[in-house]
Nucleic acid binder design. Structure first.
Lengths: 210, 210
DNA sequence: GAGATAATAATCGTATACGATCGCAGTCAT
DNA sequence: ATGACTGCGATCGTATACGATTATTATCTC
């Protein structure tokens, strides 16, 4: 694993954890010092993330966590739905006991934050697909939404609402019932994202930069 | 537009043109000299492309155009289909005369190579969606397949087979008939990609690195 | 005291520099 | 002649260095 890979992972994990609020600027030499490297590999990692849309570069102002418009949030949700459905279709016939156990584990895991645990669950279900690129795309979409999901959950007081939906979805996967699983995933994603989008719309209407 | 942006565009365009065959290694200082810059922005651009899966970095061996397995080609096709359908749905109600004219123009344009013209046509249809991320994803998938599409067409003797399908699709968009357009796009993509995938399968069976 | 302007400090972007690694050519021993 | 070894050239990865740009503080004027 190269230096650039390590830096990239650190920043992605920070995003998935919600440690980087929208708008946060990333100081290249600070990050470089923290990791004990020079700016060069740091910049290369940031450029990777900007290619994925997880960061935004502005000339002479460096990289920052982009703020999402409502339209972009909707776009992300639609993309997520259509990609995740295809991956799940591909994954279910290939799922092993291990994959299912990993998904189960992610559900109860109190070590992880809400968005981390959520993504760990979904990734566990998808990994049997073997679709490297598709998985990467979905991870990106999760990471891009994470800061806002966190804000939304905070505004709710910290409840994780989709526990039971996750359990149902897991059961359908266990039984190998592709069509039911796809139906459950579709409605689960629709509910989760419409909640966040409504939350975003309210704030956008109020003129908040969130 | 930053230096990194320029370098990135040059390489993506080379890929879409098919100027970079699978397996080609990219020499950083050669490219840097050609563009009159140092290695730093070149490497940053290559890292962006590697994040998108258009290039593959190997430690101490730099970046190279990845060779696609049949499984990956199938994955790309499925992803393309599901993403492009959603974008087209979003785009049709927002299409302007200009978008349609651009698409028409791309069809007949003999200046462009086959894959370039094909992508120009599809992009023209999609741009009205306003979906930045979705468009970027689809462009990536096109660029990843382009080297192989080129090889396939070469093996056929250079014929562009999907002219009439394109015209039908364009007509449906003009009439604003979303469902017909989606049907046409779906079958068009299915045909085009299954041809390339069959071609790839043959070569993989023969043990060619293509 | 408030606002505008100048000086200073932070930060960015990229060129240069250099050690590390890889691949190949030439040499030697068998 | 063939196979292993050594040395050199090419290429990579990253640290350092520096000019350019942006932010911040200090100073001056009204």
């Amino acid at each position: 694993m190269s230096t650039v890979d390590r830096v990239e992972r650190v920043v992605i994990d920070d995003l998935l954890r919600g440690a980087l609020a929208p708008g946060t600027r990333i100081r290249q030499d600070v990050l470089a010092d923290q990791l004990g490297v020079s700016k060069i590999p740091v910049r290369e990692a940031l450029q990777r993330l900007s290619a994925l849309g997880l960061l935004h570069f502005e000339t002479n102002r460096g990289a920052a966590v982009p703020t999402l418009s409502v339209a972009e949030a909707i776009e992300n949700s639609v993309l997520r739905k259509s990609i995740e459905v295809e991956i799940l279709r591909q994954a279910i016939p290939n799922m092993s006991i291990v994959d299912l156990a990993e998904a189960e584990l992610a559900l109860g895991n109190a070590e992880l934050g809400v968005t981390e645990s959520n993504w760990a669950f979904h990734r566990a279900l998808y990994q049997a697909s073997g679709w490297t690129r598709g998985l990467a795309m979905v991870e990106i979409l999760h990471a891009a939404m994470a800061p806002y999901v966190l804000l939304y959950i905070e505004s709710l007081g910290g409840a994780e609402p989709s526990e039971s939906e996750h359990r149902e979805l897991l059961a359908a996967c266990r039984e190998g019932d592709v069509e039911r699983a796809v139906r459950l995933l579709t409605s689960h994603l629709a509910e989760a994202s419409s909640a966040v989008i409504d939350f975003l719309s309210m704030n956008e209407a109020r003129g908040d930069d969130v």
